[in-house]
Amino acid sequence: MSLPADYFDELFANSDDPWAFQTRWYEQRKRDLTLAALPRQRYARVFEPGCANGELSLRLAQRCDALLCMDMSARAVELAGQRLQAFAGAQVLQGCLPGDWPEGRFDLIVISEWAYYLTPELFTQVVERLDASLTAQGSVLACHWRHPIDGCPMDARQAHALLDEHLPMQRTLRHEETDFVLEMWSKQPGGIDLDEQVR
């Protein structure tokens, strides 16, 4: 069984930053590495489910024309919406995957620090929907804490194994440290575009 919505509502009831995204060096460094791992300077449309209070969302919004964020906590949606007010192309919705799957296609889908909250069965349903939601050049980036988390149905190793098993794409990046693993799968596994202009 996946963790219920009220688990996250309770976390945000006690703090606007329950995982200390804004203050922990680990979180700041991981965000920097996540953004540095993206091979394209800019994306047309990005989807970030599980956006929490929008700390990573803010950085993603600077790298794309349109950003769709989603979280199951109403308070998280409110906080992320406030953070992204300056970006006309950013939208934050309340919802939970796989049930509340958004319409349209994306160049990039970011799965950061939430897959292990789902059961393997539910996360497999999420993974199986990813391919159909990507553009022809689309990519999936996943990053997760590698240590066990009490009450979670999975760990990072299991979640990333399901991504690797069910995504019909080539894995183009893998970065593993003691604390987290960062991977990317791409439909068109080309390298860095050396001719891409800095904006």
Rank of each mutant, 00 (worst) to 15 (best):
T178Q: 10
L163T: 14
A37R: 02
R24P: 01
R157Y: 05
L3I: 10
D9S: 07
R146D: 02
L163S: 12
A115H: 06
F106D: 01
L79C: 09
D155R: 05
M1E: 14
A61R: 04
L93D: 02
L60A: 09
R42M: 00
D195F: 12
A13D: 08
Q94A: 08
E10Q: 09
D9P: 03
Q62L: 13
R42I: 00
A156P: 02
R63P: 10
I109Q: 04
D164V: 10
S139G: 15
P98I: 09
E27C: 09
A86W: 08
Q94G: 09
L182S: 14
A20F: 08
L130D: 07
A156C: 06
I149R: 08
R40W: 01
R24Y: 06
I149K: 10
S2R: 13
K187G: 07
A90V: 05
H147E: 09
F47E: 00
L134V: 04
G151F: 05
R171I: 03
R24Q: 10
R83K: 13
E55W: 14
L84N: 04
F87M: 00
P153I: 01
A37D: 03
D155Y: 01
T23C: 01
P102I: 02
R29M: 12
F47W: 11
H147T: 04
R24N: 08
A44D: 05
E183W: 13
A88V: 04
P49D: 12
G95P: 08
L56F: 13
C51E: 11
Q188G: 05
N53I: 09
E121T: 14
L130V: 07
P148Y: 04
A159P: 02
F87G: 00
Y26I: 04
L56Q: 12
E176L: 09
Q91I: 06
L130I: 05
E128W: 08
Q158F: 02
I111M: 15
G190W: 13
Q41N: 03
V140E: 13
A90Y: 05
D32A: 12
W25Y: 09
G190C: 10
T119V: 02
A142R: 07
R199C: 05
Q41W: 01
D193A: 06
G54E: 06
P49K: 09
P189G: 08
Q188I: 02
E55S: 12
W145H: 07
D155V: 01
Q170V: 10
Q137W: 10
P39G: 00
M70N: 11
P39T: 00
Q158C: 05
R129W: 03
Q94E: 14
F123N: 00
Y7T: 05
D179H: 15
P168M: 11
E196L: 03
H147A: 02
P49R: 08
P18T: 05
